[in-house]
Simulated scan of single mutants.
Amino acid sequence: MGVKLEVFRMALYLTFPVTMFWISNQAEWFEDYVILRKRELWPPEKHQEIEEFKERIRKQQEEKLLHAVQQNS
């Protein structure tokens, strides 16, 4: 019984990760669960708001840097 039990355990240990890897790499699963969930959490309208915010912050940083350079001149 010892060898049969070890063979069963080894098969189980190898089957589980291989199966999970196979399931998680299915393109349909990825599209359905990951991409749609991402769009649900961060809709495209929010992306525009985030980009505008980044642009404002970048301009503020440039103005601070320009002001600091002008004061040092």
Rank of each mutant, 00 (worst) to 15 (best):
M1D: 04
G2L: 06
G2S: 06
E6L: 11
V7N: 01
V7T: 09
F8Y: 04
F8V: 12
R9Y: 07
R9S: 09
R9P: 00
A11E: 11
A11L: 12
Y13H: 08
Y13T: 14
Y13Q: 09
Y13K: 12
L14W: 10
L14Y: 13
T15I: 09
P17G: 03
P17L: 02
P17E: 01
V18F: 14
T19W: 01
T19D: 02
T19R: 06
M20N: 03
M20L: 13
F21T: 07
F21A: 11
F21G: 03
W22I: 13
W22D: 12
I23C: 02
I23T: 15
S24M: 14
S24W: 11
N25W: 03
N25E: 09
Q26M: 09
A27V: 10
E28S: 15
W29F: 15
W29A: 07
F30H: 10
E31G: 05
E31Y: 08
E31C: 09
D32A: 15
Y33V: 15
Y33C: 12
Y33K: 07
Y33P: 00
V34C: 07
V34H: 04
I35K: 10
L36N: 14
R37D: 04
K38E: 10
K38H: 12
R39Q: 08
L41D: 04
L41C: 05
L41S: 05
L41E: 04
W42Q: 07
W42D: 02
P43D: 02
P43V: 04
P43Q: 06
K46P: 00
H47V: 12
Q48T: 13
I50P: 00
I50A: 09
E51F: 01
E51W: 01
E51K: 07
E51D: 12
E51L: 03
E51N: 10
E52P: 00
E52R: 08
E52M: 08
E52N: 10
E52G: 08
K54P: 00
K54I: 05
E55G: 01
I57A: 11
I57P: 00
R58K: 11
R58Y: 00
R58H: 05
R58D: 04
K59D: 00
K59V: 03
K59L: 08
Q60D: 07
Q60A: 10
L65H: 07
L65C: 02
L66W: 08
H67W: 02
H67R: 13
Q70E: 14
Q70K: 13
N72H: 09
S73Y: 11
